[in-house]
Design a binder for these strands. Structure first.
Lengths: 207, 207
DNA sequence: GTCTATAATGGGATAGAC
DNA sequence: GTCTATCCCATTATAGAC
């Protein structure tokens, strides 16, 4: 959205076409890395998809590593709405909505699952990104669960921070199984099941 | 164990040394694939670790793909005891024990996490292995939860099959987070937390 | 900005001597 | 069984013409 607006408001600016080109490349790279991983995907394949030569691609992104980092940064924009801090929506509803939303965007879950696990390998450029991302997610959901606990809406004995870690872990694990057997695994149902166990029903409908 | 026994009982047989060599290679390949993934790891690096040339390695395993499949098969032996069908132990205790056991074997969790996610990429040789493995795990744990349900020890409203899927998903996801931040994530604790939510205490101490 | 050409490196796999 | 030598292919990245 931000990008398109730039394109509209600065259509004749010196960077308008260049920015459009960058977006095309990022789309292509997203698809390639999702389908083949970072190490398994090649700049040539990205260039083919983007309709340009491999060297032209390197004019916009000076290295494969840079390209990956830009893809990861843009992923956050695509899935924004995924984070629980954006509205007065209940935690459970927010999570389920985001899970269903992501299933509808081709390649988003593949990219995330593949690159995340690949990032734990030696010298992988995406490692810091995922480490920091998980830290943020645990802290963010931990706060939400703590709020629920303060309202007496967390099941007794459940630790907010552990619930946050487990929610994120469950989500990731369900997506992995879903990618391998989409007919046998229902991500949203699994998340709902967990959240129903942990969160007690409240009088406030927005809980 | 099987391998060592073969070595002992057939020490002077024609295949004893060859089998030993194969095990050395599999150890090396396990370490390399765990640290760099399948696509990121090279036969040369495996050969270096095993103390032989890359071509000698290919004498024992005709292709990189064959090597990977053998590593995956042997992984099941290394982690045997991981499956809940081997003794009269409670489901929860069995899971926790296996989780702690795996943490102590260097590279086992790395290998599993990295290769599993990598296997969802295009034309990855490990894909069928992980798809079938998940199918077996869901079925196996699904039966265990169903048994508990029949004893009235599953929390009302919890579906046994969904609990099985979720347990496996949670386990995987916790391991991924643990690999990226071992000081901030406790796999066994997270699993125990989930199992305590789902399984009700029983009079039988082995439940 | 885009391309061709190419450098520089590394990959998996094969042939064949010993 | 083990090695050297090599093939053939792919990769990322750079140089430089246009």
């Amino acid at each position: 959205m931000t990008t398109k607006d730039v394109g509209r408001t600065a259509k004749r600016g010196p960077y308008a076409k260049s920015e459009e080109r960058r977006q095309t490349i990022l789309d292509a790279a997203h698809a390639v890395f999702a389908a083949r991983g970072y190490r398994g995907g090649s700049l040539q394949e990205v260039a083919d998809r983007a309709g340009m030569s491999q060297t032209s691609l390197l004019h916009y992104f000076p290295s494969k590593r840079d390209l990956l980092m830009s893809v990861l940064e843009r992923r956050d924009e695509i899935t924004s709405g995924a984070f629980p801090d954006d509205m007065e929506e209940g935690l459970a509803d927010s999570v389920i909505r985001t899970a269903l939303h992501n299933e509808d965007i081709p390649g988003v879950i593949e990219l995330y699952t593949v690159l995340c696990a690949e990032s734990v390998t030696d010298e992988h450029p995406g490692r810091d990104y995922f480490t920091e991302r998980y830290g943020r997610l645990r802290a963010s959901y931990g706060r939400r669960f703590a709020e629920l606990a303060a309202e007496g809406r967390l099941r007794p004995g459940v630790d907010p921070d552990q619930a946050a870690t487990s929610l994120v872990a469950l989500w990731d694990g369900l997506q992995t199984q879903w990618l391998l057997a989409p007919d046998q695994v229902d991500v949203a149902k699994g998340l709902r099941g967990y959240l129903n166990l942990v969160i007690l029903p409240g009088t406030d409908p927005t809980g």
